[in-house]
Design a protein around this nucleic acid. Sequence first.
RNA 1: GGGCCCGUAGCUCAGCCAGGAUAGAGCACCGGGCUUUUAACCCGGGGGUCGUGGGUUCAAAUCCCGCCGGGCCCGCCA
Length: 512
Amino acid sequence: MDNLAWKIVEREKSLGRDLSMIRTEAGIAASGFVHIGSVSDSVRAYAVSLALKNLGYGSEMAQFADDMDGLRSVPAEIPQSFEKYLLQPVSLIPDPFKCHESYAVHMESMLLEALTKAGVETKLFRGYQVYDSGLLKQQIAAILARSKDVGLKIAETTGQKKFTETLPYFPLCRSCGRIYTTNALGFDQKTGRVHYVCKGVEIKKRWYQGCGYEGEADVSRAEGKLSWKVEWAARWAALDIRFEAYGKDLADSVKVNDWVCENILNTPPPYHVQYELFLDESKRKISKSRGVSVFTPDSWYRYATPQSLVLLLLKRIRGTRVVSPRLIPALMNELDRLAQQYYSGTGDPRRTGLYAYAHFLKPPNKRPNTIPYNLLVFLSSIAPEGKEKEFVVSRLKRYGYTVDEEALDRVGKAIEYFKSFGQVPGERFALEEAFKPAVAEVAEAVKNASVAEQLQSAVFEIARRHGLNPQQLFQQLYRILLGQDSGPRFAVFVVEDLGAQRAYEILKSAVA
RNA sequence: GGGCCCGUAGCUCAGCCAGGAUAGAGCACCGGGCUUUUAACCCGGGGGUCGUGGGUUCAAAUCCCGCCGGGCCCGCCA
């Protein structure tokens, strides 16, 4: 992050621009459900913004909601009756869940809540309001005045010929309320109005017949929007954006927008980073419209802390990321290890820096209570159904952990994780010959064990008698019983949780 | 048809853009300490042909070209 911020600053210096406010931007699509990819954009832009501040420059992140976009398909969770709103701007469609003022605001707030939980602070711009306030009107006018050049450039870089015939602007049809069915045919510089005819459009292999209405749209009002091919450029210039990352599926659009920004609006485009997309477990691009299969930030928060998600998004920007709930335990563990290094004050600066950024540079004052996540998941797995929380907490207390608010929250998450995904898989294991005699003796000791402390001592005794390092013997035992390298205090666990008889059987079969 | 990303230690990743000395970190592993461990702690150690072949250079993980392996995006939708 710091490195990226430094590059941005160097570029701004060489461009001779004002350094007192270096604004970054992230977009939110408001047309479908929020997924991990949608937060990544904001999380990363915010981190860059913080890094800029850290270097001593003013910075803020602009969050731009694309709520003038038309609804192009009805997501699975939305009633099919919403078909009737297809191609209307999502900011003008009612909220299917009836809790927000519009479809767009509902979707936006899902993302904003997820970001707030993670600690991201944004300055929100809603597309509808931005268009309606006329904020972009100069840029729109400049682009439409040179629509010929723009259309040719789009055809050249993307092969899309459409805008050699129509203007790169979609008027909102005053008659039928749809936004992509219109063809913008002319622009009057004096009145700032676009002349259009509602002809129809083909989207996703489906033809939508226009209503035939012919009229004019005022570019200083929310009566239409720019095509994506040029809209970014207008935003960048109007909002003075200096950094914006983008997913590689939009690479061509960015090329065109950069050109427009530079050559039509006479503004150097923002510094970019292209990142790879997020894939789901089936290795396909995560899509907003595919519905329930989408792994959302909220579902992540059910199983893990927001910071673990931030860590995932910040630790590596390059390369494709397959997002899977299976990543959760590893990330929780990694965050705990980072915490250890951060608070001990001796860690590698790169690692402690990552920890700080996972908390957006506001890490907790004192080291958080990091009860190992895998332990919690394991305890959940042996907990009686319906009483998981009480059970896990009682065991934790017995093992000597402090169970505070924070720990309780984590316990809840781990229980959810176990319910959804099962035990964290351990590695396959074969008992080493050298340990067999000792393990056999432990088995006998376990058989008759009723007092935990005695058993615990017996294990140490056996280890010494066999000339083994107790630590190693314990490790073998944990591997046999749990499939993990370590575990809760051995004797307590055997006597009170697993049951002496059952433990005996498992150990016995391991040395057979 | 056009384009992009990844390949560095067992694992997760830095380093590459602006080429320099024995290539780093965490975890794991090994050894030692702590006379019984909270899935702890402390000290030390081993471990990498930097995917591969060539080129440029006094010098290449780093720059250029080819190849292999893994994966993705775009193709007139935004």
